[in-house]
Design a protein around this nucleic acid. Sequence first.
RNA 1: GUGGGCGUAGCUCAGUUGGUUAGAGCGUCAGUUUGUGGUACUGAAGGCCGGGGGUUCGAGACCCCUCGUUCACCCCA
Length: 417
Amino acid sequence: MPEFQTSPGMRDILPPDSGRWRRFVGIFSETVTAAGYGQIIPPLLEDIGVFHRVGEATDVVTKEMYDFVDKGDRHIALRPEQTASVCRAFVQHNPATPWKVWYAGPNFRYERPQRGRFRQFDQVGIEVLGVEDPYVDIEVIALAWNFFAKLGVQQVSLHLNSLGEPSDRERYMQALKDYFSNNLEHLSQASQVTLTKNPLRVLDSKRPEDQQLIDGAPRISDFYSPAAKAHFDTVQEGLRELGIAFVINDKLVRGLDYYRHTTFEFVGGTMDSAQNALGGGGRYDGLVEALGGPATAGVGFAIGLDRTLLACDDEGVFPPVPDEVSVFVVDITGGRQAMLITHELRSAGISADRAYQGRSIKSQMKSADRSGAVLAIIIGSDEVDSNTAIIRPLRSDQEQYAVSRKDLLPTITKALS
RNA sequence: GUGGGCGUAGCUCAGUUGGUUAGAGCGUCAGUUUGUGGUACUGAAGGCCGGGGGUUCGAGACCCCUCGUUCACCCCA
């Protein structure tokens, strides 16, 4: 065993998997930039207060943050998510609204690692600030939907809920608190603790002994104000019109406290593990204000790379594809010719690789095959003497042929086109 | 943070009731006569059996601790 290894919950993404990550983000960025979103690259570190404003009752900020005091005595945290950073950036830079941004990058949470759950994990996401219009909720959901479709994942179900307006949510929380408090003896120990912190989250409990009580709990839908109901109705109608299937899940209370109105989650269909939430989001009007900005509406989502990739694996879609080059130079005269030719090709924008250490022609041909190259260029002493090169097609039955060195680049260029 | 499973070559795994130089497949590398890949055959390299301690004449196999991993709870992406 090596002396040093990645610490728990951290890992190296190696090729060819890393290429898949790159394509994942590439497809995401295409999807959302085509909808008018610009990229934001917030820092990994923020003043810990930024995240505290997100909600004091969520484990994400109370127990799971990587935080430290820096050399300037500032209390700093590695971001556990990026929505708070986006809102902080909004307050700091005061951009014109609607502000539509996307991001991709790692977040950090000190949790016990599990399948689909790491301490450093990547998310892609979008946020729209400054728009209350329910059509934005629909747009945001539709973009995530499109993205899953582009990846080829089929079995994703959209769970939808509304938490109503803040006052609706308050009244509902009180009703839940009363309901559970009156039935404490049927509630698990752990849920009793949760109840004191945030009654909404009791609905999230997966403990079997809680299920019966939860099933009989008051429903949020009975607490909607007319405005909240209208908002939610518009979202549902819009999704139907767009042909986006969803299920109403009135137990869907998301972990971060700033959500109100629309909340949603994308649940993987093939994973029976507990980590089956591929992504989620919702509306968080009020978060910007909590961070010291003007009252500003906000909606967005985040999608986890790892879990989505797991879902892809389960469905056999979006496989990792090794990175390949177009040309492989086989030089059996020592390597200087390969140096010259690969440089010439690469300078002309043609991807090219070679072998090193003067290996046998057979071994170099093997490498050429594995490199994925379409063409091999073979240089032996005969070719050096006659100032030529052999071009050997590797992916067709076409015979190999010789060209003069000065014609090599144009010939290769033509053969590849 | 709490509880259960697992930890043997780069990868996937065998290793009989504890007994002499620890195995396979895949992968890697090299050969199979003269300068040519994808197949086949042959061979080679590569493991203080996660780490530490203990029991024993003797431990990869048993016990304890520790680290890592995995599953569930929790939380969430």
